[in-house]
Structures are given as C-alpha cells and as structure tokens.
Design a protein around this nucleic acid. Structure first.
Length: 425
DNA sequence: TCTGGGGTCCTAGGACCC
DNA sequence: TCTGGGGTCCTAGGACCC
C-alpha cells in the first residue's frame, strides 16, 4: 500500500510555526515580487481568496479582513520541507519525495487497522517534531492515494488520515469525485471529458481501454488502471537528476537598460550552474529568453528566446560568457522588459564525459578549481557571498519582497535581528 | 500602478537511414 | 499510366504537475 503525505497549506503553515500568533487567523504567502497569492491558510481560503490571485485585486478584502500577508521565503520553506521529509523517511520502508510539500511512502502490507494507525502515528509525529500539519491518504495506487488525501483533508471525520481499501465502497466515492480533480487531468482533458458526458471518476473507469487509449493516449489508460487500484505509475524512490534546469524571474520594475538585463541573465546563469554542479551534470545547450510585460496591452510587445549548443561544461565562467552572447543576439532597444530567464538542457553526467574528436575543449582545470572554491565559500557563508562582477547588483534590486519573514532556520544573523547586509561585511 | 517559478511526459510530423 | 517497406531520431507544441 502507498501513502501520500501532503503538508496542509504548506507555506502558510511554515510561517505559523515561527509565529503562533497567526494561528486561527487568515494567512497568505505571495509569489516573487509580491505579485500573486501562492499559499493560503484555511481561513484565507474561506474568505474566497483563490490560488494565484493577483494581490492588487484582493487588497481591499485583505485589509478589511486583516489577512496576514507574507512575501515568499523559500530558504525557510525548503529547510522545513527537509525536516518533514527526514521524519517520513525514517518511518517508512521507502519514500519518493514528490514535491516540496508531498511525499509517497511505501507502507508494505498490513490490515486496514494497522495501516490507518501507521498513518495516524506518522501525522502526530510530524506535527510534534516540526509543527507542520499533514494529511495522509493510503491506497493501493498513487492516483487513489491522491484521492484519499483529498478526502483526508476535507472530511472532518477523518482527522486528516484516510484509508482507501478496495472493498469499502470505492465505486461510491469515485462517483462523487469530479474528473477535473483526478491527478493527471487538467483543464483541457476535463473539458473534453465533459463534452463526452463524463464528469466523475466512476464514469471514467467504465470507458473501454481501447477508447481511453485512442482519446487520451497511454497517459489516460494508466490513469484508468490506477483508479481501478492497479498501480501503473511506478514508485521512484531514487531522485533522478533533472533533465533541464531553469532560473527565471520577473523584475520588480520594467527594465530598458541592456546592462541590467545582462546582469540578470548572468545571475540566472550562475544559479543554474550551481544547481547543475550539485547534481554532477554537465550541460550542452542553453536557452536564454526575455520578454516584455504581456499584461500591458498598451505597450509594444517583444518575446524571444535563443538556443545555443556547445561542448559539455559545468563551468560558470564559460556559461556566463555563452549567455551574454546569446542575450546580445535577441536584445532589441526600445522595449521595456519584464522578465528574463535561462534554461540549461541536454545534460551528460560529469563522470562519463566523451572527449571531442575535432573540437578539443577541455574544461579549464584552474577555472574549475576556482568555481568549486566559490561554491564551498557560498555554501558556508550564504548564497551570493562571492559573486561575479557580471552579476552587478542584480539580486540586490531585483525583487520586491516587502513582507518576508526571517529565515529562522537558515540564517542566524536574521534571527539575531542583524540586517543581512551588515552580517555579510 | 500591480499579474510566479520550475519542472515532466507524450505525440505528430519531418528528415533521414537501409 | 505505373514509383516500397521498415525503421530511428529529433523537434515543436501541448498538456499536465506542484
């Protein structure tokens, strides 16, 4: 049996752990630049603030109801996630960390009572050790575990733990479960099913295999099997290296200066390269993209990307050089830019590098030593302690984050209320 | 005035091979 | 007049996830 453990309103719950005064009050957490709502406490959900809501559209409601608003603090959430995952992995035979706030666990076999007790104990333990409330759904397949978690979260009788056995009226529960909520069915597929008169999971699994395969491809067929309790999506306990690594940000204000755009692209490249080395990969292609503010219909629009291919490297200096050249190729004067990003793709593992036949391009050993030393220093003293001049002052100015909580678990200086700037000096 | 960021998988169709 | 059959690889675009 598989359990899905899902942290309730994760980012909002993280803020609450360090400020219990927030308990019982509506709390929201914002996206970068304080633009959109990306997490809500139950109280905030009850006020009708939707996921992804632009802050400015809800400002009145937020002020009227005294909603507590936080800028995102990913250093904090990432660290809290690690603590939760550590507890889960100690308590199960196997774990697949699915996202920052979700994990699948392999619970093996057991009676209904045993399985439910396991889930309840686990929930208690995570709450006691980290302060984070979780919901746990247990079922024979991942997709059913997802549904079980929905029920665990919503049905007050469950007390946040629900076991999906194959006998206990699964049909009735699926008949109540809208297709749009099934894991793997998005807006488009739900619309298509709607036109066919299929609105709930029970109706979906009555369709023939051949029909599902033809209309919804192999992905649809797997979903049907999963809903029948036959696992079709494998349990991936080992986290695989990423196939693409992306860093992109909207700017707090629109940007016209080439210099600033270049600093942004250089900074994103540095971040991507750090992630690349952390997973022991080298990259052989990069996309750089820039675009204007697509919400400003009154302004001229421009949106372009360019892809560059090159011999395998994980060297920040090489990559920044490539990125700057790529940017030069797509930059146009006169536009006001809102966002820039870098994507690294087509990786090879660093220990299985193929030598070039014609184009000898050995990674400069001295430069790599420098780059690795910078990694070590930044690990110890905090990200961005040592930086390239190419990055300019990008991350100092780039983000609007007026209401960020302190990084309680990762920066002592902040806990002691010393400003980050002072501590860096 | 103000609107997030980071990923994965699947398919169709083109280009190519023998 | 009439023009094969069986494959692979790559890419762009769509759909989805949190």
């Amino acid at each position: 049996m598989i359990a899905l453990v899902d942290c309730n309103n994760f980012y909002a719950s993280c803020e609450r752990v360090f400020d219990p005064g927030l308990n019982g009050k509506p709390v929201v957490v914002l996206s970068n630049n304080d633009g959109c709502v990306i997490a809500r406490s139950n109280e905030a959900k009850a006020l009708g603030i939707p996921m992804g809501a632009p802050l400015f559209q809800y400002r009145q409601l937020i002020e009227a109801k005294q909603v507590r608003v936080f800028s995102s603090n990913f250093a904090l959430y990432g660290d809290m996630s690690r603590r939760v995952m550590n507890i889960l992995s100690e308590s199960a035979r196997d774990i697949e960390i699915y996202s920052i706030d979700e994990a699948f666990l392999d619970l093996g076999k057991g009676s209904d009572t045993e399985l439910l007790q396991t889930a309840q104990k686990l929930r208690k333990k995570v709450l006691q050790y980290t302060g984070i409330p979780v919901s746990i759904g247990v079922a024979p397949s991942k997709t059913l575990a997802k549904i079980a978690t929905h029920i665990a979260k919503k049905d007050p009788y469950c007390e946040f733990c629900y076991l999906f056995t194959d006998t206990a009226g699964r049909e009735a529960i699926l008949a109540d479960f809208p297709v749009r909520e099934i894991w793997g069915i998005g807006r488009r597929t739900a619309e298509k099913l709607g036109k066919m008169g299929i609105s709930n999971a029970a109706a979906f699994i009555k369709l023939s295999d051949a029909f599902v395969l033809r209309e919804f491809t192999i992905t649809g067929l797997r979903m049907k099997q999963e809903l029948l309790g036959q696992p079709a999506i494998t349990f991936e306990s080992l986290s695989k290296p990423k196939k693409a690594i992306c860093t992109a940000r909207s700017f707090g204000e629109m940007i016209t200066s080439y210099e600033f755009l270049e600093q942004a692209v250089a900074s994103h490249t540095v971040t991507c390269a750090e992630k690349l080395r952390r997973q022991h990969s080298c990259t052989t292609s990069m996309m750089v993209f820039i675009h204007t503010n697509m919400f400003r219909k009154d302004l001229p629009q421009y949106c372009r990307n360019t892809v560059v291919k090159f011999p395998p490297t994980q060297n920040t200096l090489t990559l920044v050089h490539i990125a700057k050249n790529a940017l030069k190729g797509i930059f146009r004067e006169t536009f006001a830019y809102k966002k820039a990003g870098v994507i690294l793709m087509d990786f090879v593992q660093e220990n299985s590098l193929q030598e070039e036949l014609f184009n000898a391009y050995p990674e400069d050993a001295r430069e790599m030593e420098l780059v690795r030393t910078v990694d070590l220093l930044n690990d110890r003293y905090g990200r961005g302690t040592l930086r390239l001049a190419d990055q300019g002052l990008f991350d100092k100015h780039a983000l609007k984050q007026k209401r960020r909580s302190r990084s309680y678990t990762t920066r002592w200086s902040e806990l002691l209320d010393i400003s980050a700037d002072t501590s860096k000096k």
